[in-house]
Design a binder for these strands. Structure first.
Lengths: 201, 201
DNA sequence: GTCTATACTGAGATAGAC
DNA sequence: GTCTATCTCAGTATAGAC
């Protein structure tokens, strides 16, 4: 990785954490990094791809830890399915650790969430690993009807994204908020299936 | 409300529902509405305030129905507190009805959510009424420690916003998804308080 | 392969004539 | 209230120096 590219990434991360993505112009970033405007497009292609690389270098290690954690949880429960709480814990703990270690990282993720840029970002950096976790959740809840399971996964996603990236105000440690989150979500997932109301045609 | 203003609102709503807020330029809107560019700033002040009025005229009736529904629920349970399920139902049902009645409305809300514009929008149009509902939830759960209650409210917000505005793909009726949502969230809210782990200093 | 200088297009916003 | 003309600033594209 060339020095120019790294300087751009670092400057962008600092500025986006502070001001947000939309509010941070490329001209601001190059001024902070002390490089030329065109070098951004040379190294990244576009502002959006710059954001993408910026996220990748932080999220990739987290995702690796997540999968490793999940493997341990699965092994401990084998040949049965691991309980919901442990699957959620495996997903959330590495993120919480990263957040505690690097406040700037969580700020950037919060900005991405707040500015609705997670569409493409999420698809690329989160979907592949989260699919793995959802499959394990399914194994843990074999009796839940598929339709209701899929909806509960959506509730899980909404609550989790909001809690990990959206609640910036709360000054609590991430270890604490994921504890409450896992407790809440587990209760929801373990709830018996709701009665499906059939509407007569 | 002058004709020009109404034409701008209608055109903007149509285009934003289809393309999103950021992707829709004022020049596109005025072309569709057949008005002049400057008239947008004359009537609304800015693109963002145009969005704001656009949301208000749809959300205000929903909020009124929400509060009326809540009052009925409170009266039925008096002098006790209404159960969590009913409070959530009072909040979600009017939105689901509006969504079923006007697909364009839910598209716009989805765009707003997807593009992260809900920050200012939410504060203005949702916070005042949601505060009322949160107070009722608190009454229904008097034994839950305040800190954990506040977190559960955050989980509720995340799951609800994602479910009502974020999941565009799902072709299910809103009545169905709020049924599952209420069932899931109630289980989480009624769960006994989690053991607070004290970290020794 | 890297970097610099500069130009292009389209955005939202505004001033002032009518 | 409405319209024309214009301003500033954004992201992007390219030509060419090292």
């Amino acid at each position: 990785m060339t020095d120019t590219k790294l300087r751009i990434l670092d400057a962008a991360e600092r500025l986006i954490a502070e001001q947000g993505y939309a509010a941070t112009s490329l001209r601001q970033i190059i001024a902070e990094a002390g490089v030329n405007l065109a070098s951004v497009h040379y190294h990244f292609g576009s502002k959006e791809e710059l954001l993408d690389e910026l996220v990748a270098r932080k999220v990739n290690p987290v995702n690796e830890k997540r999968l490793a954690f999940l493997e341990r949880v699965i092994a401990a429960a084998a040949p049965g399915a691991p309980p919901v709480e442990q699957v959620l814990e495996a997903f959330l703990t590495p993120m919480a650790e990263a957040a505690s270690g690097s406040p700037q990282f969580v700020k950037v993720m919060g900005r991405i969430q707040a500015e609705g840029l997670r569409e493409s970002i999420a698809a690329k950096h989160f979907k592949p690993v989260s699919a793995r976790f959802i499959a394990e959740l399914r194994r843990a809840l074999p009796e839940l009807p598929e339709e209701e399971f899929q909806w509960r996964v959506q509730f899980l996603i909404g609550a989790t994204v909001h809690t990990m990236c959206g609640c910036t105000a709360a000054g609590h440690a991430f270890e604490e908020r994921i504890f409450y989150l896992i407790h809440f979500l587990s209760a929801g997932f373990y709830a018996p299936a709701g009665k499906k109301v059939e509407v007569p045609a």
